[in-house]
């Protein structure tokens, strides 16, 4: 059974169709890259999978671990092991990162019928994960993403991913706004989490990220559909020839 199965997905925003019958299958342990020009529907796909309000699903199926995602609230999907690293992580003033992480993690655990972590256990876990990502302790005491640089915000996304240990991670332009050093730290964090049970979908415009996190499968999206799939060679081709060749295919 695939971990994620998207079949003939049609999605509208305010009456306008954005996804026109998208198909995608992600098996356990695989890293997929989705590439494509602006407006091809990449972010919409990530939002629909995770259940962001504001999208009308007019046709199609979304199965995660064989279960119908569309019947689940977004928080239930999270507890099931679905994680989205946001392209633009939001700021939450007055709520420390530590408090946020703990509230979220324990909410997920509770939904799964597990007991919440004790404070010392949680702190230890969070500090260890932060250290691996080069995140200073002081950052954990600041308001969530408040005053964080672009790189810090992205590292904070990876920190959450490391703590929550999701089964499917969707990384929406995790490489945008990162300098080369920050990109390396983020990529190391992602690679450290690769495992035979965990899958990833990386949405990106650029081949650069894929040099650090080498994908098993590369998809090209255009005009709301997956128009071509291949291995990492496909990304290199794209880098050389651009997206124009796929515009007609769509």
């Amino acid at each position: 059974m695939p971990l994620l199965e998207v079949r003939n997905l049609h999605v509208c925003v305010e009456g306008r169709e954005i996804l026109h019958g998208l198909d995608l299958t992600v098996n356990a342990g695989k890293v997929h890259a989705i590439m494509g020009p602006n407006g091809s529907g990449k972010s919409t796909l990530s939002h629909v999978i995770t259940g962001k309000p504001g999208y009308q699903i007019t046709a199609g199926r979304l199965l995660f671990k064989g279960e119908d995602l569309l019947a689940m609230r977004p928080d239930q999907r999270a507890a099931k092991g679905l994680f989205l690293a946001f392209q633009y992580p939001v700021e939450i003033p007055g709520v420390t990162t530590m408090n946020f992480l703990r509230t979220a993690l324990n909410a997920q655990r509770k939904a799964r019928g597990q007991s919440g972590y004790s404070t010392p256990h949680f702190l230890k876990k969070a500090r260890t994960a932060a250290k691996q990502l080069n995140i200073p302790q002081s950052m954990l005491k600041r308001g969530v993403n408040v005053g964080f640089s672009g790189g810090e915000k992205k590292r904070n996304e990876i920190l959450q991913m490391a703590l929550f240990e999701p089964d499917l991670c969707i990384l929406d332009e995790i490489d945008s706004g990162l300098d080369i050093d920050a990109l390396r730290i983020v990529a190391d964090g992602i690679n450290a989490m690769r495992s035979p049970d965990r899958s990833m979908i990386m949405i990106t415009h650029y081949q650069r990220l894929l040099n650090y996190v080498v994908p098993d499968v590369v998809h090209v999206m255009s005009k709301g559909r997956v128009v071509k799939s291949g291995d990492k060679q496909l990304a290199l081709e794209l880098e050389a020839s651009g997206y124009a060749q796929f515009e007609d295919a769509a």
Binding site: T50, G51, K52, P53, G54, R73, P74, D75, A78, A79, F83, L84, F86, Y88, P89, V90, I92, P93, G94, V95, N99, F100, T103, A104, L105, A107, Q108, A111, G143, Q160, F164
Partner: peptide, 25 residues
Amino acid sequence: EDVLFYCIQRGMSQEEAVSLVVNGF
């Protein structure tokens, strides 16, 4: 909506998310 969705995507219920944001405020 974006802040709420961010919290909810991390596993919090709607009420927990509002409560968290308000308590921060």
